[in-house]
């Protein structure tokens, strides 16, 4: 397929996941903080900004770190390219450039989602019914994912879509853990619950670990679970599978090698060892690894074609002989 189309599908997946993750994060943070002190609140909101890697940019705007200012920034601020609204708009714009590759149902569900968000009074939503708004974003993203899974052929386009989606998810989950793990003492029951809830993993966690709130169990679940689809390892396996299908004749491409090493590092990790060592550093390395994979994907697939120098073109038949 066209390199440009592949890139657009990759980013459609990424932006949708970004919108969904941001909505989840805001939802649990907001509702987890209704009964806390102002200091705890400010800490929680700066954690949110750190998890979406917008802490520094936000600080440059000299805004107070409050629920209202951070939520507005992350939901609809037009200056924030990472806001939910911007992410959905960009997912739509990317999809629009590859519309002929998408099923009508997929395009329509994404387009209506975007049009609905545009048409809402998001400021009023944030003030009066934030949970409904975040629920809507989450549901619509899941609808798009579901429609995609049910209607798209498992061809190259699908692989790039899944790849972007899961690399974004793995990176986000990784950052969420980085931000949260330090506060996770066994007594901080509240934060544990919220961290799991923001990954929609509370029920699945309980079925595996029952009522345990051992930090190692939570880290193992969010980082290394082989069955929970939002864990870092699971997302990386899904991404690796997509990359494997993209490599012709089982060729070991650079992004595939990088991702394989990253994934197997996690696959054969032991959570107790990780907890005794420097978990923060480990998470940073995984996050960096994910970003390198994304960069290699771009080099391998989105800009792989030979570039031509205008001056070396043979403009008349027979001139220069050709190769």
């Amino acid at each position: 397929m066209l390199a440009r189309d592949a890139e657009s599908l990759f980013w459609t997946g990424r932006y949708l996941e970004r919108a969904e993750d941001t909505a989840r994060l805001l939802d649990v943070t907001y509702h987890g903080l209704l009964e806390t002190t102002p200091a705890e609140e400010a800490q929680a909101w700066s954690d949110v900004l750190a998890a979406v890697r917008l802490g520094r940019v936000f600080a440059e705007g000299r805004r107070p770190i409050t629920a209202a200012s951070v939520s507005e920034y992350l939901v609809f601020d037009p200056k924030n390219a990472g806001s939910i609204l911007s992410a959905v708009e960009q997912a739509r714009e990317n999809a629009r450039t590859v519309r002929e590759q998408l099923s009508t149902e997929l395009w329509e569900s994404l387009n209506s989602f975007c049009l609905e968000l545009r048409g809402r009074n998001l400021r009023a939503d944030l003030e009066f019914q934030p949970h409904e708004l975040y629920g809507l974003v989450r549901r619509q993203c899941q609808t798009v994912a579901g429609v995609a899974a049910e209607t798209m052929a498992r061809d190259e386009g699908w692989r790039f879509f899944v790849l972007g989606w899961n690399l974004e998810r793995a990176e986000m989950s990784c950052r969420l853990l980085s931000v949260r793990y330090r506060q996770l003492s066994p007594s901080a029951f509240h934060q544990w619950m919220n961290t799991l809830r923001s990954a929609s993993g509370l029920e699945a966690y309980r079925r595996t670990y029952q009522a345990s709130m051992d930090p190692a169990d939570v880290v193992e679940f969010l980082l290394l679970s082989r069955t929970f689809p939002r864990s870092v390892l699971f997302s990386l396996r899904t991404a690796e599978n997509a990359l494997g299908h993209l490599a012709l004749d089982g060729q070991l491409t650079r992004p595939l090698r990088q991702l394989g090493r990253l994934r197997s590092g996690l696959e054969f990790s032991d959570v107790r060892e990780l907890m005794q060592g420097d978990l923060g550093e480990e998470l940073r390395q995984v996050e960096e690894g994910i970003r390198q994979v994304a960069a290699s994907v771009a080099t391998q697939y989105f800009s792989n074609s030979r570039e031509f120098d205008l001056h070396s073109l043979h403009l008349l038949p027979g001139e220069g002989g050709g190769r």
Binding site: A3, L248, R306
Partner: peptide, 13 residues
């Protein structure tokens, strides 16, 4: 892209 009077499109492969 055109090279030696042949038009090609840039694909992932």
């Amino acid at each position: 892209v055109v090279d030696d009077h042949v038009v090609s499109m840039r694909t992932t492969q």
